[in-house]
Simulated scan of single mutants.
Amino acid sequence: MTDSAQLVEVFKALANPVRLQLLQWLREPERHFPEINEVGVCVSHIQAKIGLAQSTVSAYLASLERAGLVRSTRVGKWTHYQRDEQRISQLIDVLGHTL
Rank of each mutant, 00 (worst) to 15 (best):
41 V>I: 13
84 D>W: 08
34 P>T: 13
52 L>E: 14
27 R>Q: 14
27 R>L: 15
91 L>V: 01
83 R>T: 05
33 F>G: 07
75 V>I: 11
9 E>T: 11
33 F>D: 06
57 V>R: 05
33 F>Y: 14
64 L>W: 00
3 D>C: 00
57 V>M: 03
56 T>D: 02
20 L>D: 07
24 Q>F: 07
78 W>T: 09
16 N>I: 09
16 N>D: 15
72 S>T: 10
95 L>I: 07
18 V>L: 07
68 G>N: 11
83 R>G: 03
91 L>D: 02
31 R>P: 05
70 V>G: 06
13 A>M: 08
12 K>H: 09
12 K>N: 10
34 P>D: 14
36 I>E: 11
89 S>F: 02
62 A>H: 04
74 R>L: 13
9 E>R: 12
68 G>L: 05
89 S>V: 04
16 N>W: 01
94 V>L: 09
26 L>W: 13
56 T>Q: 10
97 H>E: 07
82 Q>H: 05
43 V>Y: 02
47 Q>V: 09
64 L>C: 01
14 L>K: 00
10 V>A: 11
30 E>P: 00
10 V>G: 09
55 S>C: 00
69 L>E: 02
88 I>N: 01
99 L>G: 14
79 T>D: 05
48 A>G: 03
23 L>H: 07
33 F>P: 10
88 I>F: 02
73 T>I: 06
56 T>W: 00
19 R>H: 03
66 R>C: 09
44 S>A: 11
16 N>F: 03
83 R>E: 02
70 V>E: 01
54 Q>F: 11
92 I>D: 01
31 R>G: 07
22 L>D: 04
7 L>D: 08
23 L>F: 07
38 E>A: 15
34 P>K: 15
